[in-house]
Design a binder for these strands. Sequence first.
DNA 1: CATGAATGAGAGTTCATTCAT
DNA 2: GATGAATGAACTCTCATTCAT
Lengths: 193, 193, 193, 193
Amino acid sequence: MGKKSERKKQFIRETARKVFIEKGYKNVTMKDVVEACEISRGGLYLYYGSTTELFLDVLQMEAQDTDDAFSEAVVNNASPADILALFLQEQKKELLRKEDTLAVATYEFAFDREKPDKENYLLRQFQEAVLIIEHLITEGVRVGEFVCDDPHAAARNIMYVIEGLKISAHTMGVTEQTVDEEMRYLMQRLTNG
Amino acid sequence: MGKKSERKKQFIRETARKVFIEKGYKNVTMKDVVEACEISRGGLYLYYGSTTELFLDVLQMEAQDTDDAFSEAVVNNASPADILALFLQEQKKELLRKEDTLAVATYEFAFDREKPDKENYLLRQFQEAVLIIEHLITEGVRVGEFVCDDPHAAARNIMYVIEGLKISAHTMGVTEQTVDEEMRYLMQRLTNG
Amino acid sequence: MGKKSERKKQFIRETARKVFIEKGYKNVTMKDVVEACEISRGGLYLYYGSTTELFLDVLQMEAQDTDDAFSEAVVNNASPADILALFLQEQKKELLRKEDTLAVATYEFAFDREKPDKENYLLRQFQEAVLIIEHLITEGVRVGEFVCDDPHAAARNIMYVIEGLKISAHTMGVTEQTVDEEMRYLMQRLTNG
Amino acid sequence: MGKKSERKKQFIRETARKVFIEKGYKNVTMKDVVEACEISRGGLYLYYGSTTELFLDVLQMEAQDTDDAFSEAVVNNASPADILALFLQEQKKELLRKEDTLAVATYEFAFDREKPDKENYLLRQFQEAVLIIEHLITEGVRVGEFVCDDPHAAARNIMYVIEGLKISAHTMGVTEQTVDEEMRYLMQRLTNG
DNA sequence: CATGAATGAGAGTTCATTCAT
DNA sequence: GATGAATGAACTCTCATTCAT
């Protein structure tokens, strides 16, 4: 595949991303993508054989972008507590974003029984986040900002709360106030001891 | 619809429940249900006009059963800490049950745009659970079993952790050990102060 | 079939008549009739095996009623011109009645290829009307009210105009004024010579 | 849709026309058309979304062809009386054609409630015909062929007779002799005065 | 590479008709 | 007689996928 094709593939991927954001995963048909891209049916099949294949590629692209975001955050020279607060703010923003998020599509994809489960994107994201938080807590404890017996357990618990908030945001709804309160709750536990 | 057909409706509902457990929500077609029930195409439509209608009814049945389970638990004369521990054990059991759970179907249903959103089943379940836990914590504080400034916030946090564990169980997987650790973590916070 | 059944059959027939008026012939299903009558599916089949059978019976009932109307009109002792004018007024009223008419259903029925063409209701109605008009014209000529070479041809022509107005009323629409003008046109030809 | 598919659309339209002629309007299903065209189910939907859409297109095609026929007739240099006689002959031929006519389907279509009533095809045809006849009569009066006080009324009356004959032909049947007699009757009135 | 017409499988839905009660 | 649950045939419509150009 030459340079030109790669650009087209990228165009399809990005357009499909919007479609997945709008309609979730299971509701998206190849026809939807064809129409959104304004290309021919056969043209799409040259690049992707199914919506699953497409979504996997979208997900991978997403992962790269997210990794970059993470990196940026960590590169900051701020104190561990500040970075963690920043991280939670990021999560909050993501949580409350109703439009323009792949969250629902990603959940639906994860639910899908007959997908090629090459690697679990959600798991990797989760584990990476736990590692980062754990690291921050450890650092925080070291510099006296945090009090915590078991940084790993604390980090994992934070992530489960965030997961709980995320799924709740998309199923039953959460208010900004609720998220704020939960985030504060998480921080207090680390600072209060 | 007489007595006889009410029994049949129940039969369909229960059979469909198994189908939803097995295939989720979006993957289930009226044909699937027809085949599982071994009735005729038209026969099913006599009772339910769509899988959505069916799922709503399954959900309602589920809610009734669950309510009963809740009641039983609370009726016990055990101490608040014991009841909460029991409750968490129930949640754990539910969490780890991979087969025989409507969890995924329920999530998928909640994601569905264009469903008649009469009342949010998940939200109600969540709020009821928060109330119960809050009550238990308050009681626990009163009898000196728990230490807690803000029982409502604590209760809600517990439920978000459980939600996080639940969705994680169905997307990235959680081990029994992890659940145990999280549950212990939650209890400790209430007892340690 | 006893007295009671005959009454029920009549009830069905009359209810079905309303349904045919409302929905035409082809659009009416046995289900529609069952629902309109508020009887059971099987119950309807005890009396009528199909909508065709039902419509034939409705038509026959209609014919009887219409015959009575005709008789009344003719029994009058008025002059032939008066009776003919009266007849045309009746036709006008029928023509302009948009609701409460079986006209469309009757046409649709006549179009139906696979009906048992026992006897052509429309043809009989038409021929009877021609006979009556012809008779009136002959009488009118005799008493010097009308001038007409060929009463049969004139009568038939009048009926074709009326048929033309009737079908037009239900396909393209006709105004009361148009009908009036046509009716006057028909009468003038008989009186002007 | 390129050139090639326009040809196919035309093929479908023409094939469907035959189906409508044979079975009327309401009896025709998409399946019937698919089978007549010997194409796939989905293939038909590529061109037409419903039998209604199809029929509207058939009707429009028909209108074009008819318009051409009209034009030809009028272009003739014959006398008004000759042209009118020719017109009536055309109508007679159309009237008596039992096979190969869309008349019944067109009536059924006109009866259909819930159709998109963009423009009333029958009405337009009727009004155009009235205009032409009126013009012919006026010309005929001018050149001394016809005697007529009110050409518009006469023209409209002629059309109602023809409508009456047409609907009668398809509901109760008319003989060629009857049509001839009616046509002669119409001409005589214009020539006799 | 790209197109888009074509296919056919399959889901949804409605009803005429039957039959056990 | 009467009921209404049950069946199955028939239709509508949508897409994934292929293939000739």
